[in-house]
Structures are given as structure tokens and as C-alpha cells.
């Protein structure tokens, strides 16, 4: 299987997860979007040498995984697949910043190593929070959240249209690539000579499709406004979710809970 088929399956997998019906899935999508953004900003706001204080943040994804019934494997897979760029940038820290930063027992730990591990932790946290948002919220509900958050309508409509046709177009691209690779079996990727015509033909077909969709819209009275009827009331549970997590994030940001816990456990030595 090539990259495109992998990604396609992944997209479908998330779509299926989002179609579940759990307490998390029932939350108002706007509340989930805001909480996710808050979480990510909070994680990013820790100082770059923070390590220990970050750990309580894992409670948030753990909560969503548990109550939202999301398999951990799919999150881990994505984390690993998106890792390279972050690794590429972060891996230099241990080499560039070798001054001793702290001691664990009698081991000296360099600042670069700490900031590198901290980058990995932040990365894991923010990636899983983002993925958990789409694994527990359908694209359609995210569209609703976006328009509630005053994202311009034209973008919301475009994102919804786009998500709808990604499925159609990926299948079309896959068929084309398959037909191409059957006739060019020893090639990795699409060769230089056929780029233009392969993508160009797909593009022409796409333009034709847009034309037909437009006609179908016209036939049903389209006048330039795409109207979507939705009502999703915010309930007390939604507010509670937002408030509790906000308080929690702020608390974790201000108080180094694991450090405190460890001291309690070790009886104040260290």
C-alpha cells in the first residue's frame, strides 16, 4: 500500500470513531474546540525546560480516550508518523546545550536533553489532543463550532465541501495512481514525463465536477447562500466540562503537582 491509501484509511477510521455516541461525543462541539485550543496553548506555555510539571496534562487526553472510547493505537501511530520534523529540529538541543541543568540523584542532566524531552512531551500532548478532537467530533459538528466561533462563513462552507469531496477525489486519485503503477511497476512515484498530464487530467475532471455540482445546486434553488439548519444547545454539562478543565489546566500550569507528590511520597527529602 502506498501513502495515499494509508492516509485514506486513516481518515475513514477517524470518521468512524467520530460517528460513535459517547458522553464525549455528545458534548457541544464548540466547547470541545475551545477546550482543545486552551489545552494546546497551556502545554505550549510551559517553560522550555519544564518536564515534570507537564505530566499531569496527560490526564486530559486519558480522560477523553477513556470516556470517548478511542483506541490508543491510532493516536500513537499518528504521533510516530508526524514525529520526524520535530525530531529533526529538537535533536540538536542536547548537542547545543550541554550545560548541566539538574541532578537526578547523582546523575547530571544537561539542559539540552531536558528541553529535547520536553519538546517530545509537548508534541505528544498537543498531537493527541488535536486527534482526540476529531475522533470525538464529526466534521459536520466542527463546522458548526467554527461558525459559532465566528469563522467567516465562506471558509466554513469551503471546509465542509472540501471534506465531503476529499472522499470522492482521493478515490479518483487512487484509481489513477493504481492504473499508472500497473503500467509502470518499477517506479517509485509518478515519473517526470507524466506529471503534467496525470495531474492535469485529474484537475480537468475536478473542474467539470465542480460545474456539475453547481448545476445540481442551481436546480435546487441555490442563490449564492448555502443554508445549513442546525441547533445544538449548550447544556450545563458542556459548561461544566469547559470550566473544570480550564481550572485544571491553570492549576497544573501554576503548581508543579508531580514534584509535590514525589516529595510527599519520599517524605520531604531530595
Amino acid at each position: 500500500m502506498n501513502k495515499i491509501e494509508h492516509r485514506w484509511l486513516e481518515l475513514r477510521h477517524f470518521d468512524e470513531l467520530a460517528a460513535q455516541d459517547s458522553l464525549i461525543h455528545q458534548l457541544h462541539p464548540g466547547v470541545k474546540v475551545v477546550t482543545t485550543l486552551l489545552f494546546i496553548v497551556m502545554v505550549a506555555s510551559f517553560s522550555k525546560y519544564e518536564l515534570v510539571g507537564l505530566f499531569p496534562m496527560f490526564i486530559y487526553p486519558a480522560f477523553l480516550i477513556g470516556l470517548g472510547n478511542i483506541p490508543v493505537a491510532i493516536l500513537l501511530k499518528r504521533v510516530l508518523l508526524t514525529l520526524p520534523f520535530v525530531l529533526f529540529i529538537g535533536i540538536f538541543n542536547p548537542f547545543l546545550d550541554q550545560a548541566t541543568y539538574a541532578y537526578i540523584g547523582s546523575f547530571a542532566v544537561s539542559g539540552g536533553l531536558i528541553s529535547f524531552i520536553s519538546i517530545l512531551l509537548r508534541f505528544t500532548l498537543s498531537v493527541s489532543a488535536t486527534l482526540l478532537l476529531v475522533a470525538t467530533t464529526s466534521m459536520d459538528a466542527i463546522g458548526l463550532a467554527l461558525s459559532k466561533l465566528r469563522v467567516p462563513r465562506i471558509i466554513v462552507i469551503q471546509i465542509l465541501f472540501m471534506y465531503r469531496y476529499i472522499y470522492v477525489l482521493i478515490e479518483e486519485v487512487m484509481k489513477t495512481i493504481r492504473a499508472h503503477s500497473l503500467r509502470a511497476p518499477y517506479r517509485n512515484g509518478v515519473g517526470f514525463k507524466v506529471w503534467g498530464s496525470l495531474v492535469g487530467l485529474l484537475l480537468l475532471r475536478t473542474l467539470d465536477r465542480a460545474q456539475r455540482i453547481y448545476q445540481a445546486m442551481m436546480c435546487r434553488g441555490f442563490d449564492g447562500q448555502v443554508r445549513i439548519m442546525r441547533s445544538w444547545k449548550i447544556r450545563t454539562g458542556d459548561i461544566a466540562f469547559l470550566v473544570v478543565w480550564t481550572v485544571f489546566f491553570v492549576l497544573v500550569r501554576l503548581v508543579n503537582i508531580p514534584h509535590w507528590l514525589g516529595r510527599m511520597l519520599l517524605g520531604g527529602f531530595s
Partner: peptide, 14 residues
């Protein structure tokens, strides 16, 4: 080409 909205409901309501 005919079903361009996010859900069946939206499409029929269009």
C-alpha cells in the same frame, strides 16, 4: 454531484 452537503439531512433540506 447531487449530494454535496455534509449530511443526508442537509442535502434533503437544501
Amino acid at each position: 454531484d447531487q449530494l454535496f452537503m455534509p449530511t443526508v439531512f442537509d442535502d434533503v433540506a437544501f
